[in-house]
C-alpha cells in the first residue's frame, strides 16, 4: 500500500468518526415513532407505549413492535428481511428501513422536525 492509499483510508475514517462522534454528542432519546410510506408520514406512535401493529403497504406487510422504549420490525413478507435483522432503534434519527416495501420507520425526538434534520444531516 502506498502513501496516498493510507491518506485516503485515514481521511475517510477520520471524517466518518468525526460525524459519528457528532451523533454521540447530539443524540437524544426519541419520543415518537413515525411510519413513512413512500416518503409520506402516515402514522405516529409514542415510543413509551407498547404496541404491535401490522403496517400494510401496496408491496407487503411489516409488523412493527414498540416495547420498553425500543422499536423494531418483528415480521415482514419482503424478500430480504433486512428490516427484521436490523437492530432495534430508540434514538432520534435512527430508522428501520424496508426497501422492497418502500417503508421507513423512524424515531424522532420531538415535534420540531428541523432539529432532527440538523442532527441527522
Amino acid at each position: 500500500m502506498k502513501k496516498n492509499d493510507w491518506l485516503l483510508f485515514g481521511s475517510v475514517i477520520v471524517i466518518a468518526c468525526i460525524i459519528l462522534s457528532g451523533y454521540r454528542m447530539f443524540t437524544t432519546k426519541g419520543t415518537y415513532v413515525e411510519v413513512v410510506r413512500d416518503g409520506v408520514v402516515t402514522e405516529r406512535y409514542r415510543l413509551s407505549e407498547d404496541i404491535e401493529v401490522a403496517i400494510e403497504t401496496a408491496y407487503g406487510i411489516n409488523v412493527l413492535r414498540i416495547q420498553d422504549g425500543y422499536a423494531s420490525v418483528i415480521e415482514a413478507d419482503c424478500p430480504d428481511k433486512l428490516c427484521v435483522k436490523q437492530k432495534e432503534i430508540m434514538n432520534a434519527g435512527e430508522s428501520l428501513i424496508c426497501l422492497p416495501h418502500r417503508l421507513v420507520i423512524r424515531v424522532i425526538g420531538s415535534e420540531k422536525e428541523t432539529e432532527i434534520d440538523a442532527v441527522a444531516g
Partner: peptide, 18 residues
Amino acid sequence: VNTVQIFYYLPFLVVAGA
C-alpha cells in the same frame, strides 16, 4: 423510499466500505 433520513447510516457504511 423517498426519505433523506437514510443518510444517517452513511458514516457507518463509509467506514465499512473503506
